[in-house]
Structure formats: structure tokens, C-alpha cells
């Protein structure tokens, strides 16, 4: 089927493709032997009372690519400083007013109902230090996963982050699931791999994530 003047370059490309394919497959098999990366279970990270739970507020304006129209739709809501009680609310109880209203999108599934709320972390801890919002650190926003976007999956989850004295993320656990294991893992992986705090004492933060489609 190949014409004479075209066969040579194409055979070369095919040979390269095949070689690349074989190499990728080989690395894949080796990678598979190493076993999947696990999101640590909650229990491994419930430290003693010495590690206080702190709330995390991302730097004032996370780099959300927001159209001006969005902000303008709910100016009142955005301007209102939203209060959250100290005890951790189930994710579903997070005030929705911090976000622009969800648009009705026919193809989009409703956010999965959060699973039964996990009892508050260290609820019995005598003192909980307050976290002052700080710009010290790197908190890039995770991308919306392609598979979730394509299937119209949305969700909210709460991630518990242990931060080492160096400021590096020591461990990440999902406190409250979005109901979508893949979305939970995506957020947890992202925090573990991309976030870092300024050096200081070991700390813990609860970070709520909201994945929403518009």
C-alpha cells in the first residue's frame, strides 16, 4: 500500500514509534510492580495533641481564571467575609456564598452528596491555634481533571495536611470525601506534590476543595 517514494521515511517513523512504544510498555510494567501510590488513611495521621489543627485559607485571590461577569454576579456575596464556626462543619455545610452560583448545566451531574461526616479532628484537643492567612508558601491551584470534566463530575472535599517543620507537606489525608474517589485522590496528590509552606513548627491544616463545572 505504500508508494515507493514514501516508504522509507515512514518505515523510519514506524520503527521509532514501535521502539518508543516498547520502551514505554517496559517502563510501565516495571512501574506497575512498584505498586500504586496510596493516599494514606486518616488514622495514620492523627497526631497527638501536640499537633494542632489549623485552618488554611489560601492566599487572598487564588489564581482562578474568573470572568469578570462571575464576580459581578454576586458582588454582595463576595464582599461579605464569611464566617465558619470553629468546629469543623461537614463539607456540605460550607457556606456556598463564597462561590459564584452554580450554573444550570443539563449535562452536568449534581455534586455527589458527601459521605457521612467524619467526627471532627482533635475535637477534644484543649487548644486549637488559629491560622492566620499568609502568603508564605506555594499553593498552586490544581487543574480540573479531564475525566471528571468529561463525565460531568463535581464535588467538594476536605483534605487534612500535615506540614513538617521545613514547610514541606509530610502527609495528606482526605477528611471528607467528595463521593468520587478519583477526585479525592486528585486533590490529595496535588497538595502533596505541589504545595509547600514556609518553614516553622509542624502544623496541620484542613483545606476544603470545591470542584465545580460551569
Amino acid at each position: 500500500m505504500s508508494t515507493d517514494h514514501s516508504s522509507t521515511p515512514h518505515e523510519r517513523v514506524y520503527a521509532w514509534s514501535a521502539a518508543l512504544g516498547t520502551a514505554t510498555l517496559a517502563v510501565c510494567v516495571l512501574g506497575a510492580l512498584a505498586g500504586p501510590v496510596q493516599v494514606p488513611a486518616d488514622d495514620h495521621h492523627d497526631h497527638g495533641p501536640g499537633a494542632p489543627v489549623q485552618y488554611f485559607t489560601p492566599p487572598a485571590q487564588p489564581p482562578v481564571k474568573t470572568k469578570p461577569t462571575i464576580a459581578a454576579t454576586v458582588p454582595t456575596a463576595v464582599a461579605v467575609p464569611v464566617a465558619v464556626p470553629l468546629a469543623i462543619e461537614p463539607v456540605s455545610a460550607l457556606p456556598v456564598t463564597t462561590m459564584p452560583a452554580l450554573l444550570p448545566v443539563a449535562a452536568v451531574r449534581a455534586p455527589a452528596a458527601p459521605r457521612a461526616a467524619v467526627p471532627p479532628v482533635n475535637a477534644a484537643a484543649p487548644a486549637i491555634e488559629r491560622f492566620a492567612p499568609s502568603l508564605a508558601g506555594e499553593f498552586p491551584e490544581p487543574p480540573y481533571p479531564r475525566w471528571a470534566r468529561q463525565q460531568g463530575i463535581q464535588g467538594r472535599l476536605l483534605v487534612l495536611v500535615d506540614v513538617a517543620a521545613s514547610g514541606a507537606v509530610q502527609s495528606v489525608a482526605v477528611r471528607e470525601s467528595s463521593g468520587q474517589a478519583g477526585l479525592d485522590q486528585h486533590a490529595a496528590d496535588w497538595v502533596r506534590l505541589h504545595w509547600s509552606w514556609a518553614p516553622g513548627a509542624p502544623r496541620r491544616y484542613l483545606v476544603p476543595f470545591v470542584f465545580e463545572l460551569q
Partner: peptide, 19 residues
């Protein structure tokens, strides 16, 4: 939340995906 004596700011990280 007005009853809460010590309100704490907690803004979620909102990730928007366009469909």
C-alpha cells in the same frame, strides 16, 4: 454564624471546569 464567638475565615479552593 453570628453566634460563633470567634469566627474563622475559611475559603475553599474552588476549581472551575468549563463544560
Amino acid at each position: 454564624f453570628a453566634q460563633d464567638p470567634a469566627p474563622q475565615k475559611m475559603n475553599p479552593v474552588v476549581i472551575k471546569g468549563a463544560t
